[in-house]
Protein backbone atom coordinates (compact mmCIF):
# COMPACT_ATOMS: atom_id res chain seq x y z
CA UNK A 1 0.00 0.00 0.00
CA UNK A 2 0.99 3.64 -0.29
CA UNK A 3 1.16 6.27 2.42
CA UNK A 4 1.61 9.94 1.79
CA UNK A 5 3.95 11.97 3.95
CA UNK A 6 3.22 15.68 3.85
CA UNK A 7 6.49 16.93 5.31
CA UNK A 8 9.95 15.92 6.41
CA UNK A 9 8.70 15.95 9.99
CA UNK A 10 5.94 13.52 9.10
CA UNK A 11 8.47 11.25 7.39
CA UNK A 12 10.50 11.35 10.59
CA UNK A 13 7.43 10.32 12.61
CA UNK A 14 6.68 7.49 10.17
CA UNK A 15 10.22 6.26 10.73
CA UNK A 16 9.65 6.33 14.48
CA UNK A 17 6.48 4.28 14.09
CA UNK A 18 8.30 1.86 11.80
CA UNK A 19 10.98 1.30 14.44
CA UNK A 20 8.33 -0.20 16.73
CA UNK A 21 7.87 -3.02 14.25
CA UNK A 22 11.51 -3.88 13.71
CA UNK A 23 13.41 -6.52 15.60
CA UNK A 24 17.11 -7.43 15.63
CA UNK A 25 18.26 -9.23 12.51
CA UNK A 26 15.94 -7.29 10.23
CA UNK A 27 17.06 -5.26 7.24
CA UNK A 28 15.02 -2.41 5.79
CA UNK A 29 15.77 -1.97 2.08
CA UNK A 30 14.97 1.65 1.36
CA UNK A 31 14.56 2.48 -2.34
CA UNK A 32 14.16 5.97 -3.81
CA UNK A 33 15.82 8.71 -5.83
CA UNK A 34 18.04 11.50 -4.55
CA UNK A 35 16.09 13.73 -2.19
CA UNK A 36 13.23 11.23 -1.82
CA UNK A 37 13.55 11.35 1.97
CA UNK A 38 15.42 8.10 2.64
CA UNK A 39 17.78 9.62 5.17
CA UNK A 40 14.88 11.42 6.89
CA UNK A 41 12.99 8.14 7.28
CA UNK A 42 16.17 6.42 8.51
CA UNK A 43 16.62 9.21 11.05
CA UNK A 44 13.08 8.55 12.25
CA UNK A 45 13.86 4.85 12.71
CA UNK A 46 16.93 5.81 14.73
CA UNK A 47 14.86 8.15 16.90
CA UNK A 48 12.31 5.37 17.36
CA UNK A 49 15.09 3.09 18.54
CA UNK A 50 16.05 5.70 21.13
CA UNK A 51 19.12 7.12 19.39
CA UNK A 52 19.35 10.81 20.26
CA UNK A 53 22.60 11.81 18.54
CA UNK A 54 22.62 13.36 15.03
CA UNK A 55 21.93 10.83 12.29
CA UNK A 56 23.96 12.06 9.37
CA UNK A 57 24.11 10.82 5.81
CA UNK A 58 26.18 7.65 5.37
CA UNK A 59 26.86 8.33 1.69
CA UNK A 60 30.59 8.87 2.10
CA UNK A 61 31.22 6.71 5.11
CA UNK A 62 29.08 3.91 3.57
CA UNK A 63 28.05 2.75 7.04
CA UNK A 64 27.15 4.71 10.17
CA UNK A 65 26.87 2.68 13.35
CA UNK A 66 24.75 3.66 16.35
CA UNK A 67 24.26 1.90 19.67
CA UNK A 68 20.67 1.94 20.92
CA UNK A 69 19.85 2.37 24.62
CA UNK A 70 18.48 -1.17 24.42
CA UNK A 71 21.99 -2.42 23.65
CA UNK A 72 21.51 -3.44 20.03
CA UNK A 73 23.12 -1.75 17.04
CA UNK A 74 21.50 0.37 14.37
CA UNK A 75 23.44 0.16 11.11
CA UNK A 76 22.64 2.86 8.57
CA UNK A 77 24.07 1.79 5.23
CA UNK A 78 24.20 3.67 1.94
CA UNK A 79 25.17 1.81 -1.24
CA UNK A 80 25.18 5.02 -3.32
CA UNK A 81 28.93 4.84 -3.92
CA UNK A 82 29.05 1.05 -4.13
CA UNK A 83 29.06 -0.05 -7.74
CA UNK A 84 28.00 -3.68 -7.37
CA UNK A 85 27.78 -6.72 -5.09
CA UNK A 86 31.45 -7.50 -5.54
CA UNK A 87 32.45 -4.09 -4.21
CA UNK A 88 30.07 -4.51 -1.28
CA UNK A 89 31.50 -7.91 -0.39
CA UNK A 90 34.96 -6.45 -0.67
CA UNK A 91 34.31 -4.04 2.19
CA UNK A 92 32.64 -6.72 4.30
CA UNK A 93 28.95 -5.88 3.96
CA UNK A 94 27.92 -9.28 5.32
CA UNK A 95 29.08 -8.12 8.75
CA UNK A 96 26.30 -5.56 8.72
CA UNK A 97 23.49 -7.40 6.91
CA UNK A 98 23.68 -10.64 8.85
CA UNK A 99 24.22 -9.29 12.36
CA UNK A 100 21.68 -10.79 14.76
CA UNK A 101 22.11 -7.99 17.31
CA UNK A 102 21.42 -5.18 14.88
CA UNK A 103 18.74 -3.54 12.81
CA UNK A 104 19.98 -2.31 9.44
CA UNK A 105 18.55 0.25 7.06
CA UNK A 106 20.07 0.16 3.57
CA UNK A 107 19.73 3.08 1.17
CA UNK A 108 20.25 2.36 -2.56
CA UNK A 109 19.82 -1.39 -1.94
CA UNK A 110 19.29 -2.09 -5.66
CA UNK A 111 23.07 -2.08 -6.05
CA UNK A 112 23.36 -5.16 -3.83
CA UNK A 113 19.99 -6.86 -4.32
CA UNK A 114 21.41 -10.39 -4.30
CA UNK A 115 23.12 -9.92 -0.93
CA UNK A 116 20.08 -8.92 1.14
CA UNK A 117 19.22 -11.65 3.65
CA UNK A 118 16.17 -13.52 2.30
CA UNK A 119 13.26 -13.60 4.74
CA UNK A 120 14.59 -10.70 6.82
CA UNK A 121 14.06 -7.83 4.41
CA UNK A 122 11.40 -5.17 4.52
CA UNK A 123 11.14 -3.28 1.23
CA UNK A 124 10.11 0.37 1.24
CA UNK A 125 10.12 2.63 -1.80
CA UNK A 126 9.97 6.40 -1.48
CA UNK A 127 8.98 8.68 -4.37
CA UNK A 128 8.51 12.40 -4.81
CA UNK A 129 4.95 13.72 -4.61
CA UNK A 130 5.87 17.41 -4.76
CA UNK A 131 8.57 19.52 -3.16
CA UNK A 132 7.68 18.55 0.42
CA UNK A 133 5.40 15.55 -0.04
CA UNK A 134 6.52 11.97 -0.52
CA UNK A 135 4.92 8.60 -1.22
CA UNK A 136 5.97 5.54 0.75
CA UNK A 137 5.21 2.19 -0.87
CA UNK A 138 5.38 -0.62 1.65
CA UNK A 139 3.78 -3.96 2.64
CA UNK A 140 0.11 -3.69 3.67
CA UNK A 141 0.46 -4.82 7.29
CA UNK A 142 3.36 -2.44 7.95
CA UNK A 143 1.60 0.34 6.06
CA UNK A 144 -1.57 -0.12 8.11
CA UNK A 145 0.38 0.33 11.34
CA UNK A 146 2.12 3.44 10.03
CA UNK A 147 -1.14 4.92 8.74
CA UNK A 148 -2.63 4.50 12.23
CA UNK A 149 0.34 6.33 13.70
CA UNK A 150 -0.29 9.28 11.40
CA UNK A 151 -3.65 10.04 12.98
Amino acid sequence: MQIRSHSEEETLNLGKALAELLCPGMVVALYGDLGAGKTALSRGVARGLGIAEPVTSPTFTVVQEYRTPGGIWFYHLDMYRITDEQAALAFGIEEYLFADNAIAVVEWPERIGGLLPPGAVLNITMTHAGENQRWLELPDDIGAHLATSQR
Partner: peptide
Protein backbone atom coordinates in the same frame (compact mmCIF):
# COMPACT_ATOMS: atom_id res chain seq x y z
CA UNK B 1 28.97 22.43 15.53
CA UNK B 2 28.62 19.92 12.72
CA UNK B 3 26.24 18.88 10.00
CA UNK B 4 22.90 17.49 11.05
CA UNK B 5 22.44 15.65 7.75
CA UNK B 6 24.67 15.77 4.66
CA UNK B 7 28.32 16.82 4.62
CA UNK B 8 29.35 19.71 2.34
CA UNK B 9 31.36 17.43 0.04
CA UNK B 10 28.40 15.13 -0.30
CA UNK B 11 26.17 18.11 -1.14
CA UNK B 12 28.53 18.94 -4.02
CA UNK B 13 28.71 15.35 -5.23
CA UNK B 14 24.96 14.88 -5.17
CA UNK B 15 24.40 18.15 -7.03
CA UNK B 16 26.79 16.93 -9.72
CA UNK B 17 24.75 13.74 -9.90
CA UNK B 18 21.45 15.63 -10.14
Amino acid sequence: GSTLDDAAGEALDKAAKI
